[in-house]
Amino acid sequence: MNEAIPQKDFGDLLARNRRKKRARNAAVLAVKYTVMALLAVFLLFPYIFMVSKSLMDLVDANAAVPLLFPKSGVYFSNYKVFFEYWPYFRNSLVVVLINGVFIPLTGFMAAYPFARRQFKGKKIMFSVMMSTVMLPGAVTMVPTYVMFNSFGLVDNLASQWVTAFFGGGAMNIFLMIQFLRAIPKDYDNAATIDGANMLQIFLYIMIPMCKNVLLFIGISTVIGRWSDFQGPLIYLTSLENMTVAVAFYTQFSSSGAAAIFSNAKMAMAVCMTVLPMVLFLIFQKQMIGGIKIGGLKG
């Protein structure tokens, strides 16, 4: 009986302690959520600014005291730039579609023998391929331009997609090699015993097993090419051949014809952002997985 009282006291103490701890945890959590929310507002500021300004009329957009939100009403009419610039959006779609399909495909074709086959000259070919990573684009920029010029590819949309059929760069191929190496050798052996040839193994085993990395490379190619600015700026000179990024730049930069329409400029920015954003949201899992693996293989 004597022991019961201190035991009860002890239990009380524990309970009080637990309650205190829970209160502290709740406080920490509240602070955390506040910080996370503030950070989100800060980081999303470009979206807020862009969308808000795209809905202003010209008076609000060019007001002497800049406004964050529309003052004299919301105007969706700025979004008619999308229809005005549709030809350039179409050009860009052609470019990103061809690149986004064929770069992962031809790159994967090269990655497959490197990762899972033995053949003469594999080592040297692999090191030659990897050494091209070191090469800045500025080195090959001029001769490539001269070569494209002699093939009539300057001021031709084809200049933006002819390279899609040749693997799309060593880094892509290297990433795919990493994936392919992780697949157990038994798959090849079993398929070979069943009489499958190399092409069948490639088509029916390797492609389905690596579809996430193929999707990642495809989607990031699409997003990258959609935003690409330097390539089209060099190669596409007349307006009707331009991709949306350069058409947007030439028309709306400070020397462009549409420069004063800062509201239409932001509407155009919103239109350009929609495709990458939607693709990223749909393929979130593959994209984040790819970024992680791309960043960790050091």
Partner: peptide, 26 residues
Amino acid sequence: LYYMPTIIPGIAISFIWADVFREAGI
């Protein structure tokens, strides 16, 4: 949400910053 700003195409974000960080900007 923290990843979203990196998705805005380079030319679009350039125009946004050029507007935000003007001398007479927001």
